[in-house]
Design a protein around this nucleic acid. Structure first.
Lengths: 144, 144
DNA sequence: GTGGCTGCAAATCATTTGCATATAC
DNA sequence: GTATATGCAAATGATTTGCAGCCAC
């Protein structure tokens, strides 16, 4: 079973029709580590499927998020970011370049599924600061 | 020094003029635990200061966030929430009633100030699920 | 007096929605 | 054939911005 067939059956298992558009969104997220915004996904996919609409991308991302096939990150105050949901990890947001990076900070442990009587379904850990690339660039500018 | 004077000097220390509007925003956040949206802050303050504008509230919240006098939470996908920045703690978002609660999940420890070469300035831990009140209501509806 | 702050209204930008058409099965 | 999904355009809602007048110091 190739990657495309695997994605089709993943969608079917979720009770979702595996349309070209949904497969394209899943494929794009599977093959990027840049945690794109919805608009970035739209722009990227449109190069291969020029007729896809923004609404379809938004609908698809919402659907896949609800099915837990992908994860929606609210780390960026300006727009939601999306991540192919594989292994749990924390995320880092660079306040200068606005890129999102995976990091290895320990996430809340799965055992902590209840707090103060609230039922916890998911935990996200977000770190904010300046990324390695921007630190380096900043340093070079000072030295120059 | 009363609470109002304390807030005035807090603002002065940050290099900000302690205007009525800014003091009102700070006071409101100091005395609530509901993690309000900007619009909620605006509506609440307007009862005492009917001439305050939405733009001023947004500007003030942005300014106080930048000065680290308050914390902006991106836990709610629909709108930023604001929290008087006292002791670090994690937050819980109820997907049913959309309320935000403080919880005691361990935040990323301060020692983890660098990851993969990124300089970490702040860490936020967000948990998502169903709050105690909504769980209770849901159970009662089933029993009825 | 003047530079920073406020209030207003308009602009912007992400996201959602209604609806007619097209597609999957 | 029918339910479901897509595409388009318009609507919505949070947030930002330009600018003229006002206030703190």
């Amino acid at each position: 079973m190739n990657a495309d067939e695997e994605r089709s059956s993943r969608l079917r298992e979720l009770g979702l029709t595996p349309t070209i558009q949904r497969l394209a969104v899943l494929e794009y997220l599977d093959n990027t580590d840049e945690h794109p915004t919805a608009d970035k996904v739209y722009t990227a996919i449109r190069e291969r499927f020029p007729t896809i609409s923004r609404a379809t991308v938004y609908n698809t991302l919402a659907l896949l998020t609800k099915s837990e096939a992908i994860v929606r990150l609210t780390i960026d105050p300006a727009a939601s970011r999306y991540d192919a949901a594989d292994s749990p990890h924390a995320h880092f947001f660079c306040r200068i370049c606005r890129n999102v990076y995976d990091i290895d900070l320990p996430q809340g442990s799965p055992s902590l599924s209840v707090a103060d009587g609230h039922k916890i379904k998911a935990v996200q850990t977000y770190a904010y600061g300046i990324c390695a690339a921007c630190l380096k660039r900043h340093k070079e500018e000072k030295d120059a």
